[in-house]
């Protein structure tokens, strides 16, 4: 059983939902990434999505773009991201880590080389934003051969046929994009997500995480009622952006703890 699957099963047994924070590796500087990952775990993260910086992050809004640019300026690349995960694993062998990024850095390394290196570093899953399922059969095979869960995106506009295609390939969980647009956009429609998630859940057979547009603890709590996992990215990156370097970990911890409480409390309220 993969570490991701085990995490979701444990939470489900406890009647809990997963909190998945996203940060970009190397932002605000490479030395802070591993401490930040530990801070996320201490504040209640059940799984960490670690962004691999890319020069042309087409699907991301301005906040994640800026994080990517800051990391690239500090010389971060895919190899160094894998080193960061390995360093994190020296002190944490429980929390699953999912790399999220774009196809080209992985293809430049070679998908097979990447798969083996990611496994060695202790990565658990990989989400390639610009690999839709029809271009991913080979990629998903290579990931699974290296005990990595291939994670896929689904959107409100995804047809039944596409949900089924993702169901064929996905393991770990699927990432449901709750709105039209890029990361960090505003206004998430919880009602609309709630209507769609049961059907997606049934079709893909893995947990459904919801992200894009979750900007406050209240929304996170609402989403936790309908989804298996709550994914928070841009809001955390904004906090990183606004904090002096010596306060980044403390302020992120405070912010993420708030999300975490809202998710656990909502679960308790709804009696699930």
């Amino acid at each position: 059983m993969s570490k991701i699957q085990a995490t979701f099963e444990r939470l489900q047994a406890q009647g809990q939902k997963a909190l998945i924070p996203f940060i970009t590796a190397g932002d605000p500087n490479p030395a802070l990434t591993v401490p930040l990952m530990h801070a996320l775990v201490e504040s209640g993260a059940d799984l960490i999505e670690l962004g691999v910086p890319f020069s042309d992050p087409m699907a991301d809004g301005p906040t994640v773009q800026r994080a990517s640019e800051r990391a690239l300026k500090k010389g971060v690349n895919l190899r160094r991201v894998l080193e960061m995960v390995a360093n994190f694993r020296a002190d944490n062998n429980e929390t699953p880590v999912v790399l999220m990024g774009y196809a080209n850095p992985i293809e430049a390394m070679d998908v097979h080389v990447f798969g083996a290196a990611a496994f060695d570093a202790g990565v658990d899953g990989v989400l390639v934003v610009d690999y839709p399922p029809e271009e991913s059969a080979e990629f998903a095979k290579v990931m699974r051969a290296n005990a990595l869960d291939p994670i896929f995106l689904l959107a409100p506009t995804s047809t039944e046929e596409r949900v089924a295609m993702v169901g064929e390939l996905a393991s770990g969980y699927v990432y449901y994009i709750s709105l039209k647009g890029v990361t960090g956009s505003s206004a998430l429609d919880v009602e609309a997500a709630a209507r769609r998630i049961p059907e997606i859940h049934a079709a893909v057979g893995v947990p459904v995480g919801v992200g894009f547009g979750i900007r406050d603890a209240w929304t996170a709590g609402m989403v936790a009622r309908v989804a298996d996992a709550v994914i928070v990215g841009s809001r955390i990156i904004e906090e990183i952006e606004e904090s002096p370097a010596d306060q980044v970990c403390a302020r992120v911890k405070e912010l993420v703890s708030g999300f975490s409480r809202a998710i656990r409390d909502r679960d308790a309220d709804s009696g699930s």
């Binding site: 699907a59 839709p132 896929f152 959107a155």
Partner: peptide, 19 residues
């Protein structure tokens, strides 16, 4: 049918752009 010229071309975008 999926936009390939041999190994090139294709559709490499996030799910949100597919429709």
């Amino acid at each position: 049918a999926r936009g390939h010229f041999g190994p090139y071309g294709g559709i490499f975008v996030a799910e949100t752009l597919i429709p």
